[in-house]
Design a protein around this nucleic acid. Structure first.
Lengths: 217, 217
DNA sequence: TAGATTGTTAATCGATTAACAATC
DNA sequence: TAGATTGTTAATCGATTAACAATC
């Protein structure tokens, strides 16, 4: 696999490129220059070219980038076709919504199990899946080897659950709890979705609209 | 209000400080040095001191920071006590979950209205509120003057709805749609929660765990 | 007073932007 | 060939880290 170091900001921009290219593809446009794409996306053309060149030479001088092939390239860089196995831990309101609202298939994942501590709701169906009790988590992981866990449990239980899941071979977390999955766990990928933090950031911004503009990305 | 320019990365870190201080306060600890806090949070002490000094001198040399007062300071910097008025637009699965899952009160907002295009579900209660039809949106905004909108509608309708809401005086968006609320709208605060993008970023990371480590924040 | 830790300036590091030669 | 636009190097900008004098 590619062994070059890629800056995190670049990686975080890839899904957005992917999204814009998908849209352009749907519009039936065949190719686009970094300049035009940059205008649509509100970034610099330089940044687009620099970002893409971290991974290879995808453009053609004097012509631009083929939308279809660049879209596929980025999808493959992200690893969307690899279908890593995901489990959901915590099937409350939030967990249920996450499980049903997202297109895991086209985002590189296959949701293979849903677990909850509350034995009452076990057996209930979510989509095509049935909620299982946490008591079955260990045997399930040993049998199916899920790659990542989606954490939708109360924050108080997150530290302990994280340790347990890492023990069981989980290599990545999509974390919706308040708890910060620690920098101390090496070799584990963590994507935090701290909704409260996001809301508070918005709070700051709407309260400081008069000051020097910070409302760009 | 403070008119100094504050870098966006600093603002985005404030909620996390707030969260850690809340926890320390609950533990009954009275004060803490930037060094100890930095170790708990996995950042540098320098960064903490630099960040805080954007807003004022909250520490005491030789002693550290009073947890209770720093917690309050940060809350007040974020503007959490201002209780800006928020409306939710789109009361599907995701919207419903967002409305019920988050503590708006302690995050600087008061949720005062919920709207949906589907007349069928109007009248249904979510928490203490009732879903209203979108046809009542304009008159509601003219009467109540909400500050921000939480967008949980399908991406296809987002562009149009954004324009409509800005027209109606909305000054901030908490955007859960795929659609990027544009850089073209000046003077409007936008906080995007692109869940699919986040999931794809995680996908890249779990697929590239062998390479040079990018799994830090 | 001595020790600790801040506030702040200076140094470093990394990311973004600009420029331009290479090339389709 | 001429025009366009890339890939890539160099310049700039901004954010992070280190260092230390000020001070509790």
């Amino acid at each position: 696999m590619n062994n070059k170091y890629i800056p995190l900001p670049v990686i975080k921009r890839l899904p957005r490129y992917h999204r814009y290219l998908e849209e352009l593809k749907a519009l039936g446009i065949s190719h686009i220059s970094s300049k035009e794409l940059s205008e649509r996306m509100g970034v610099t053309a330089s940044q687009i070219r620099q970002d893409l060149n971290c991974f290879g030479c995808f453009g053609i001088q004097g012509y631009g980038y083929s939308i279809k092939s660049l879209y596929e390239e980025i999808g493959s860089i992200l690893g969307l076709e690899n279908q890593k196995k995901a489990i959901l831990v915590g099937a409350g309101n939030l967990g249920k919504t996450i499980a049903t609202h997202l297109k895991f298939d086209s985002r590189g994942f296959d949701l293979i199990g849903i677990f909850d501590a509350d034995e009452e709701i076990c057996g209930t169906a979510i989509g095509k899946m049935t909620i299982q009790p946490l008591t079955k988590l260990n045997s399930f992981c040993k049998r199916r080897h899920p790659d990542i866990a989606i954490l939708c449990i109360p924050g108080e239980n997150a530290a302990e659950m994280t340790d347990r899941l890492i023990e069981l071979g989980i290599k990545g977390f999509w974390n919706f709890t308040q708890f910060d999955i620690a920098h101390t766990h090496k070799g584990v990928a963590v994507e935090n979705v701290h909704l409260s933090d996001s809301l508070m950031t918005l709070c700051y911004r709407v309260n400081n609209m008069d000051g020097p503009d910070v409302n760009s990305k």
